[in-house]
């Protein structure tokens, strides 16, 4: 019961940890970005869920509505989504450039290429 009562938080925390794990455990630059996006999205849930009241409406001043959901978290997260999209776009653009420069998007191959170049330098 305890778990179900905090259902939204459980989901958010699961996504958060899963996303962070993907970022750390995967060597593929695109997969890392996928993990990063999941991680960021979990925070959106963390903000939005507490702002919603079951049965609440948008804050419209009218006699027939008495229960309002807090609109502020949604507005904040709208900004955070824009930031997340920009970050993802920039990350993907960098991945494309890295692929052009290194011919690979695997982290270990990139590090190996850097080390080889370092040793080849006289």
């Amino acid at each position: 019961m305890e778990l179900l009562a905090h259902f939204s938080h459980v989901v958010a925390v699961f996504l958060m940890v899963a996303g962070l794990y993907v970022v750390m455990a995967r060597g593929n630059l695109i997969k890392k970005l996928v993990g990063l996006s999941v991680f960021q999205t979990s925070v959106y849930l963390l903000y939005i869920a507490p702002g919603k009241l079951i049965g609440g409406t948008a804050p419209i001043l009218a006699p027939q509505y008495g229960l309002y959901s807090n609109p502020l978290p949604h507005v904040l997260i709208l900004t955070a989504i824009v930031v997340g999209v920009a970050t993802l776009a920039l990350g993907l653009a960098l991945a494309v450039r890295i692929r052009e420069a290194y011919g690979s998007i695997e982290e270990d191959e990139i590090i190996a290429a850097d080390n080889a170049a370092e040793e080849a330098r006289p």
Binding site: V23, K32, L36, T87, L90, G91, L94, R97, I98, D114
Partner: peptide, 10 residues
Amino acid sequence: ALAAAYRYLI
């Protein structure tokens, strides 16, 4: 520089 920027981004 690209790899460094990517790493910093993450």
